[in-house]
Design a protein around this nucleic acid. Structure first.
Length: 219
DNA sequence: ATCCCGAGGG
DNA sequence: CCCTCTGGAT
């Protein structure tokens, strides 16, 4: 098992050598906000609106005093904007009141902020503070399960399984590798198993093929 | 129609 | 466990 995992990790590293966040940010606070915005929204779109958002409200102090409607307007294109705007402003206020406008560097404290769940907290500690963490989003969840690396029904259990199976120093990169692979090859609908470099070590081998529309046959 | 690097509430 | 919130892309 570990042997197969190692092989796949090596392959993924070869396939996606430039595994870094696509989110644009200058400070931990901006990464936190950008990640909150990225829910149900592509990174590309987040990056399209953050220059204007951070141009007007560059830090927690500015954002904490911003009218929610003003933030809603600036982030509208990212969807879920009522909740996101309210959470972002409230989070900025808490940061200012409790941490002098700084972003806490540990995941547990981050998760106490409104709109910040485990996934967002993991992205922030990994990409802003260089900690080892595996943020389990929809792609990581799907690919990990198809590879046979996780059985858990929820992201939290999946994260634990992945942390056990992947060497700690590779956690953060593995997170990006699985996302990239999930977006480009191991897509939700009709995975491109015919173009996948990992098929030989994938648990889906031998499993009944999923109904395929017109694309590459599944497994 | 379905999905996007989710989170909170019931 | 389920549901809802949102616009844009495909």
């Amino acid at each position: 098992m570990t042997k197969k995992v190692d092989r796949i990790l090596e392959q993924l590293e070869t396939l996606y050598p430039d595994a870094v966040t696509e989110l644009h940010f200058e400070t931990p606070f901006q990464l936190l906000v950008a990640t909150m915005l990225s829910a149900q929204c592509t990174d590309r779109r987040v990056n399209m609106i953050t220059p204007r958002l951070f141009g007007r409200y560059p830090d927690a102090a500015q954002l904490s005093a911003a009218p929610v409607e003003s933030v809603e307007e600036l982030i509208r294109d990212c969807g879920l904007f009522h909740t996101k705007a309210r959470n972002i402003v409230k989070t900025a206020q808490i940061l200012v009141e409790q941490w002098a406008g700084a972003v806490p560097e540990d995941r547990e404290r981050l998760m106490t902020l409104p709109g910040v769940g485990r996934k967002t907290a993991n992205v922030v500690v990994a990409n802003a503070f260089g900690q080892d963490a595996i943020a389990v989003d929809t792609h990581v969840f799907r690919v990990a399960h198809r590879l046979g690396w996780a059985k858990a029904k929820d992201p939290d259990g999946t994260e634990e399984e992945l942390m056990r199976i992947i060497p700690k120093r590779k956690w953060s990169q593995a997170h990006h590798w699985l996302i990239l692979h999930g977006r480009r090859v191991c897509v939700a609908r009709n995975p491109l198993c015919g173009e996948c470099a990992l098929v030989k070590d994938c648990a889906r081998i031998g499993v009944a093929p999923a109904p395929t529309r017109k694309k590459v046959p599944v497994v």
